[in-house]
Design a binder for these strands. Structure first.
Lengths: 159, 159
DNA sequence: TATTGTTATACTCTATAACTATA
DNA sequence: TATAGTTATAGAGTATAACAATA
């Protein structure tokens, strides 16, 4: 009877889930560093990203997209407005709502964020050759599809 | 001249590094939930894990292993001692040092943590078949080898 | 009455640096 | 004087709930 090493023969080795969290956190940290060099917190970067894709969101809607609570958005939008990246206006239709849009400087910052994200990815994945990178992307996509999290929520945008 | 989609043909698709951080954070969150069900914070779980492997550490050494600062360990060890998982004694050789060891309950908790980690991994990797799990493990190991972080530091042990 | 944004409050974490006791 | 552990303090970040304006 083969008893002891039976389970070890199939599936991933023991610490794989741990490694996944560790490598993911490391990637998030390094992205945060790059973003900080642009004078942004990860959360601010996330807000700009979301607004770049869906202009005119209310604060409530943006909070939902970012996976945070509306009251936390006040200071965040204050900051982004002060830096000239975001415009906050009262909605004409429903004057309780704020309409959030990217200012021209915000559009420019979004473009730089895209460059930074690309450089960051090249850096993070550089230990892998092209085939391995494609394989990793496919595996992660499969895991992400099974898991349900907010589209632009968690990762490096938490701190 | 093929100009535009040239870069897209090799390497990972655009949001792979982002996905890595996202999936990794999700895994860490789910592990934290399981650990909380045992009445532990991720940090406490990390401390028990480290002490299980290297008994007799001083608080300074444990702090280094966990990637934190010594002053933060005081409350952590207080808590683990109160729960009966860790024993804190003055060192005979150098009476400035504390010698940290796992109490019997700590050993039992460590065994439960190992079970929880195994169940967690099975859960996290369940969307993948066995071959895919092995492939992912290899890719992550390659990334981890290239990156340098503390052995038991970061991942879910931050909060 | 319900909802949006805002503010206020209290609470948790954390870092930093004093402090003590040993060496 | 230097080091391990501890304690104190102050700061950042957060959640929660109260609040004002609008619907």
């Amino acid at each position: 009877m083969t008893s002891t090493p039976e389970r070890a023969r199939r599936g991933a080795p023991p610490r794989t889930a741990f490694l996944l969290a560790q490598v993911g956190a490391e990637a998030a940290d390094r992205f945060a560093e790059r973003v900080a060099a642009l004078g942004l917190t990860p959360r601010e970067a996330g807000a700009i990203r979301v607004l770049g894709r869906r202009q005119g969101l209310s604060q409530r809607e943006l909070a939902e997209q970012l996976g945070t609570v509306p009251s936390r958005l006040v200071a965040l939008v204050d900051e982004l407005e002060a830096k000239g990246f975001v415009v906050r206006e009262r909605s004409e239709g429903d004057r309780r709502n704020n309409v959030l849009t990217l200012a021209p400087d915000g559009e420019r910052m979004l473009a730089r964020l895209r460059e930074v994200a690309e450089a960051h990815q090249g850096d993070v994945l550089s230990p892998l050759d092209d085939d391995e990178q494609v394989a990793l992307a496919a595996l992660l996509a499969k895991l992400a599809a099974a898991s349900s999290f907010p589209p632009d929520g968690h990762p490096g945008f938490r701190r």
